[in-house]
């Protein structure tokens, strides 16, 4: 079982990020979420979702999903290539555990108002 993200359905509302933060912190916060709405290209209307998994980083872009090994985004940042600012701290966060200990998880799936995030 895993998480599937349709970035074209996503409206960038960040409910997934807050729901994941709740799972991590038992309160409302965004710092520890393993799923993040990337939103730094505000003037270009280019947004999607990042999900940190055990082995890799899933980047759900409007044009399709990309999977990168962990650390790759930091290497690119070092090379000067433009990056999502929100991608950089992902290495420091816990990987997605599908909210395994919660009765109503995965929380990001449950709280997505437009069903852009589903279980597969």
């Amino acid at each position: 079982m895993g998480i599937k993200i349709d970035a074209l359905k996503c409206t960038g509302c960040m409910a997934c990020e807050m729901a994941c933060g709740y799972h991590r912190d038992d309160g409302f916060a965004l710092l520890s979420s393993c799923i993040v709405a990337y939103r730094t290209r505000e003037k270009k209307d280019y947004f999607g979702v990042l999900l940190k998994r055990e082995e890799d980083l899933l980047i759900a872009r409007p044009e399709g999903t990309e999977i990168r090994r962990l650390g790759e985004t930091e290497e690119e940042a070092d090379s000067g290539k433009e990056q999502d600012a929100s991608a950089k701290p992902m290495l420091l966060r816990e990987a997605c555990d599908l909210c395994e200990e919660m009765e109503i998880g995965p929380m990001c799936v449950k709280f997505c108002p437009v069903n852009a995030i589903t279980e597969e």
């Binding site: 409206t11 960038g12 509302c13 960040m14 409910a15 807050m18 209307d45 947004f47 409007p62 709280f111 108002p113 437009v114």
Partner: peptide, 13 residues
């Protein structure tokens, strides 16, 4: 129209 977006945690964009 390019895309629709929602304010924080708002079910309608």
């Amino acid at each position: 129209v390019h895309r629709h977006s929602a304010c924080y945690n708002t079910p309608y964009a």
